[in-house]
């Protein structure tokens, strides 16, 4: 408990520090966006920090002037009101300068956006379908498909009046029964859609989210270089269990990935397996 408290304190202080513009160190403490694990997510992170710093700088100038004035131009210290109330010159200046600042933000933002949206020339494709309240993943090239839902432990702990302490559940609400498994070093294209209402597929470390719209397919892509497990959640209100449809993606080295694919296929070969029927239903 006391350890927890000191973490709190640390975070609160860091929050304050970030306010003052010293944000970069805050990343590890879950205060800030992270650079993530892809090119895109790194770009987005740096863009985020850039705009944040610019806003801080503007804040210092504007609030600085304001508080200076509050301090100096108080009636209680005998300030007399001046009577200027117009100046075309300054009006033009403070229209043009913000405009210039905005342009300097727009340039990197445009570049990042164009990169983010370019799902062309993928090495492989995965189709993601949202369901109330689980995800369905299909690998068309491999004939693998399966559902991925909240893991049983979290599901038990999250019930109203359950006696299970969420803190005792590993990756509470961020764990699934079947992970999406992908190879490192490949440009993976995602085809995202939904079977019922709108959902949104979001893994923060990949740097984006994309809505799953029934009747339409949205494309997105990623390329991860290092093996690892990344977690995310549905990010569009999709009904009562919107908070309980997490996403877990595991990136494996190519050889491990191939082994995983083989195992899945073997399992699917067994006609009684639920996975096989799902493949049939989906294709």
């Amino acid at each position: 408990m006391s350890h927890k408290k000191s973490v709190w304190l640390q975070r609160a202080l860091l929050g304050g520090a970030m306010l003052l513009g010293a944000g970069s160190a805050a990343a590890e403490y879950g205060l800030n966006m992270t650079p993530g694990v892809t090119n895109v997510s790194g770009e987005v992170y740096h863009l985020h920090m850039l705009i944040f710093y610019i806003c801080c700088a503007i804040a210092v100038v504007v609030f600085g002037a304001m508080f200076y004035s509050i301090w100096k131009h108080r009636k209680s210290v005998g300030a007399e009101a001046a009577n200027f109330h117009e100046s075309t010159t300054v009006e033009i200046i403070w229209t043009v300068i913000p405009f210039a600042i905005l342009i300097s933000m727009a340039i990197p933002a445009t570049k990042a956006l164009i990169n983010l949206e370019d799902a062309s020339d993928p090495d492989m494709t995965v189709k993601i379908t949202g369901y109330q309240w689980k995800w369905h993943y299909a690998y068309p090239e491999e004939q693998i498909a399966f559902f991925s839902s909240l893991d049983a432990k979290s599901n038990e702990a999250r019930q109203l009046g359950s006696s299970v302490d969420p803190a005792s559940v590993e990756d509470y609400l961020l764990n699934v029964d079947n992970r999406l498994v992908l190879p490192v070093g490949k440009k993976v294209r995602f085809l995202i859609t939904s079977n019922d209402v709108i959902h949104s597929w979001w893994v923060r470390d990949l740097g984006w989210k994309k809505d799953a719209i029934p009747g339409f397919i949205n494309e997105a892509w990623t390329r991860v270089e290092e093996p690892g497990v990344y977690r995310g959640q549905c990010a569009e209100l999709c009904g009562k269990d919107h908070g309980f449809m997490p996403i877990v993606v595991e990136f494996k080295a190519q050889a491990d990935y191939d082994a995983w694919v083989a195992a899945q296929k073997a399992q699917a070969g067994n006609s009684k397996s639920p996975v096989a029927t799902v493949v049939a239903a989906v294709n």
Partner: peptide, 29 residues
């Protein structure tokens, strides 16, 4: 994105005008 960013300009004008109104005033709180 561009159109949205533009709104910062007229809104900024407002904020700056408020601060300039306070500037060299005789303020009470």
């Amino acid at each position: 994105m561009y159109a949205t960013m533009l709104i910062a300009v007229p809104t900024g004008v407002k904020v700056f005008n408020w601060v300039s109104t306070m500037w060299k005033g005789s303020m009470t709180f």
